[in-house]
Amino acid sequence: MSQKRAVVSVIGKDQVGIIAKVTTILADNHINVLDISQTILQDFFTMMMLVDVSELEDLEELQTAFDKVSNELGLKINIQLEEIFQSMHRV
């Protein structure tokens, strides 16, 4: 079976413990992080993670877990399947 990959994006005000909280959720769900990149743009924290979701039936559970952290820290956290980015930006 080919790998199913998704992009986790985190955008919001920089603060302590963002990466820790997000990766904890991923670890709890047995999801492997394939790549990670992060910058601070005008005080805004942006992080993108490429994760392997081949084992996952649907992303809803994960999104619900992220939503909890989103509300707690005032961040926007989304998980989207990778193909959407591929198809929009690559011919």
Partner: peptide, 8 residues
């Protein structure tokens, strides 16, 4: 990551 950060 073969997708650029900027694209995402």
């Amino acid at each position: 990551m073969n997708l650029a950060f900027a694209e995402i």
